[in-house]
Amino acid sequence: MKILVPVKRVVDYNVQVRVRADQQGVETTGVKMSMNPFDEIAVEEAVRLKEKGVATEIVVLSIGPAQAQDTLRTALAMGADRAVLITAEPNPEPLAVAKLIKAVAEKEGPSIIILGKQAIDDDMNATSQSLAALLDWPQGTFASKVEVKGEEVEVTREIDGGLETVALKLPAIISTDLRLNEPRYAALPNIMKARKKPLETLTPADLSVDVTPRLETLKVAEPAKRQGGKKVGSVAELVEKLKTEARVI
């Protein structure tokens, strides 16, 4: 079976982001960018399914600026077979992204599409569910375990209070949670080989998808700063302050 894995280029998770002075977004010029951590887990899961002989081909897809190519090369170095880049700037919203992925899925015919559960920039947690709706496929979100069993895939999901296992008829959508696996590092020879793997470039117009945003961002502001930093000398002093000053115990 073929697996499609959409990946997103985001501000690296270690970067302390700064809100732009014009309040229209956060500073991204000169900031380190990486593959969204949940998407690395998605690529890893696809590669493991190929190593087990379940998958035969892995196609990775990214939607964003031309530099998203780097993110795709990383996925190819991890073990994906070929890549598709849809250039669009600024990054389209999850609904538009889902429509673009749907168009690619209709051309490629994958049995499983694996996505990260959320991108750490917009924190939306929406693309996989929206894509599943548009394709009318079942969804296994927040997956911590994936097992293909014949015509079904069993997905163990992280829910409030524990775990739930669902069985989905293929083709299906899976979104990854952190504990699904530990992504591998791409070895240098694989990074070299990845440069030669095929990468096709498209635009939203090629796929006849309207990516006009539905949400207008009026303002991006910094959250209120906490007045932290007060130190106490002992446990007794701490309890005293919590009782008399903070009045929380």
Binding site: V11, Q16, V17, V19, V26, I120, D121, D122, D123, T217, L218, K219, V220, A221, E222, P223
Partner: peptide, 9 residues
């Protein structure tokens, strides 16, 4: 957004 480091309206 961004892990709570910014608030978008």
């Amino acid at each position: 957004i961004y892990a709570g480091n910014a608030l978008a309206t």
